[in-house]
Structure formats: C-alpha cells, structure tokens
Design a protein around this nucleic acid. Structure first.
Lengths: 192, 192
DNA sequence: TTTTAAAAATTGACTAATCAGTCATTGGTG
DNA sequence: CACCAATGACTGATTAGTCAATTTTTAAAA
C-alpha cells in the first residue's frame, strides 16, 4: 500500500470519525464523507465495500488507539492503589486528549446497531482493566462488592469525568479533577 | 381533545419511543412509525408538523415521566444520607422499570436533533437533584469536592448501575445492587 | 534515458430505494 | 348538512452503492 493510497484511506477515516461523532452514523452520508475527504464517492467504496464496513473498520482502529493510550505505563510493579490511579489517570487524560475517539466509542457502544456479540468482542480490548480489578478483589484491596458493579462504576465514573472536562471546558483543571475524582472513587471502592 | 385523538397521538408516541430506542433517530423513518402505530403517514404530521417536533415532544414527555418517578418520596424530613439514598434508589429503580425511557434519554440527550430550548427546559426537571447535592455541600455532609464532579459521578454511576442490571439481566438482584452501589457512592462522596 | 503498455487507482454520472413532508379526497360524527 | 380528523398516493430531495471511462503508477523494454 503506497503513500497515495494510505493518504486517501486515512483522509476518509479521519473525516468519517469527525462526522460520525458530530452527526451520528445515520446522520452522516457517504457522499458527505467523500466530499469532505476530497475524494470521489467511488473511492470510498473501493476501500470500504459498504458503509457498515467503514464504521466497523473505524471502530477497531479507534478502539485500538484508545486502548493503547490507556495501557501506557500500567505494567509497573507499583502497589495496587498506584496502578489503579494510573489506570484512572490514563483513562481520563486519553479521553481528554482524544475527544473525537472518546465520543465515537461512547456513541458506538451504546448504539442500537451493535449486537451483543460485537459488544462483547469489543470488551476484550479492555480485558486488562478487568484483570486489574480482579487482582484488587483477590488481594483484598477492593471491598467486597460485585465484580461487575465495581467495573461499571470505575468505567462510567471515568467517562463522566472526561465528559465534565470536555463539555465544560475545564481543560486547564484536568490534573486537579483527576486527583479529586480518584479520591472519590478510591474511597468508595477500597477496603476500609 | 377527545379519546380518539388522544389514542392516535399516544399510539404514535409509544411506537416512536420504542423504535427510536431500538434504531436511533435517523434509523427510524416516519413511515415506519405511522405504519406500526396503525395510522396513515399524514396523521403523524397532523400531530407533529415535523419529525423534529415529534422527537422534541417525545423527549420532553419521557424526561418528565422519569423525573416524576425519581422525585417520589424525596420531600421527606429524613436525614441527608437517607434522602440521598432514596434519590439513588429511585434513580435506579425508575431506570430499571422504564428501560425504554432510560435508554431513550441516555442515547439521545446529546443529539443535535434536540433543540437547545428543549434541553434546557428538560434540565429544569432535574434541578432538585442539584439542590439536594448543594444542600449536602453546605451542611458539610459531602466532602469538599467540585460540585459538578460530584453531580456527574452521582448521575453517571446510577446510570452505570441501571445498565448493569438491564444488560446482564440481574433484575432479581436489583435491591442488593442498589445497596452495594450506594455503599460505594456514599463512602466516596461523604465527608470523613 | 525514453517509450510503452498493462495494472491499479480514481472518478462522477447514474440507479433504485427510501426519505420527510404535502394535499386533495374521504368518511365518520353531531 | 357542516365539520374536521384521517387518509395514502404523491413529490422532490437524498440515500447507499455501481460501473464504464479516465487518469496515474509501475516497471520492463528499447
């Protein structure tokens, strides 16, 4: 795949990410995407046989990008609380730094399009989060709560914080909000 | 407005709620709605001049229904923690008992289809939640966190718990999950 | 280096289906 | 009869996707 090809494909995916995030899947036509990407309508369908293929390709690409960002520096030998805090902090700063990706994933995973199977498949990318929380349970670092409940509260709270920062424009207060948010979360989840 | 009229209008809104939740705004055509509601396409446009009007009316209606459900029994003279727990418990049981309404609001509250006016109007319905949290701050029941942060974590955590119960079919464990969830939330937010 | 021709990439006019919304007509009720 | 809610065939616009024609790239031959 040479540079020209990669350029067009990348342009299509970049524009698709932007427009899907702004207007939703049904609200964005393939014509709009190809026009804004500066290619002909036919070109889009060379790379992505159907609109659904485009959405799925984009999903895996974006999911991978976020997943890689969140994983950074998580393999340390630090104490459990420190790694949880790193996960929390990564989650939020990745969301804040990649707002389109963040919104896209949020929209995609709660979309009525997505079958249970696809959603479960997507969850595998975040398996390491489950592993970390499970470790916390085994070692008694996290209180005696339902595993799924703790996971959901961790995940959705971090999403809530990203939305708070992005929607209200508190970009300069990010570090402080991360600290405060983790304090709330950790006091809630930790044993004693 | 006689019974006949109310019946048709209600039928349209009921079907619209169901289909919008299943397939999204753009994914649901006015033709599909009128067909499933058992009325002609023209009838839909008698009651709702445009699709956008239908969506906004429905949004307002559904938001009101959920709001009324969540408010139940909240005006008591109970201690602060008890009222917070009641709010939490109401939020979750309303979501679980009205899954279509819950998903509708969640999926579409950030949609461009909903006008700013409708959104601001609908936000007033939840003003009492803000008032309760504010009271907690003033009286030192809630720790010294950012108001918006506490609100967001409360709101999104409760949404997370509803999703957990609905998506995993833990319907019979609802009461237990509400208890556990509140323990996590309250330990996180409360002062000390 | 230049020529050349096959292969690959790109194009946009085109199609059938579907969209939101219209309106002259119909049918039921008081 | 008068009234008006209800109807569904209809419209112009838009949709995802096609494809024959054109341009660009490649690489080997002259």
């Amino acid at each position: 795949m040479d540079k020209q090809v990669k350029d067009k494909k990348t342009a299509i995916m970049d524009v698709a990410l932007k427009l899907f995030t702004e207007r939703g899947f049904h609200g964005t036509s393939t014509a709009q995407i190809s026009k804004e990407a500066g290619v002909a309508t036919g070109t889009l369908f060379n790379y992505f046989p159907t609109k659904e293929d485009l959405i799925n390709s984009l999903y895996f690409e974006v999911k991978g990008r976020l997943s890689a960002c969140i994983k950074e520096g998580l393999d340390s030998e630090a104490p459990f609380e420190g790694r949880m805090k790193r996960l929390w902090s990564n989650f939020i700063s990745c969301g804040v730094n990649k707002p389109e990706e963040f919104h896209f994933i949020g929209q995609f995973s709660s979309s009525p399009y997505i079958t249970k199977i696809t959603r479960e498949e997507a969850m595998k990318e975040y398996e390491f989060i489950r592993a970390l929380v499970e470790e916390g349970f085994r070692n008694g670092e996290i209180g005696n709560y339902s595993m799924e409940l703790a996971m959901m509260i961790l995940y959705q709270s971090s999403r809530a914080v990203v939305s708070l920062i992005l929607d209200t424009g508190h970009l300069q207060d990010t570090d402080e909000i991360i600290e405060e948010g983790f304090e709330i979360l950790w006091r809630g989840l930790a044993k004693n």
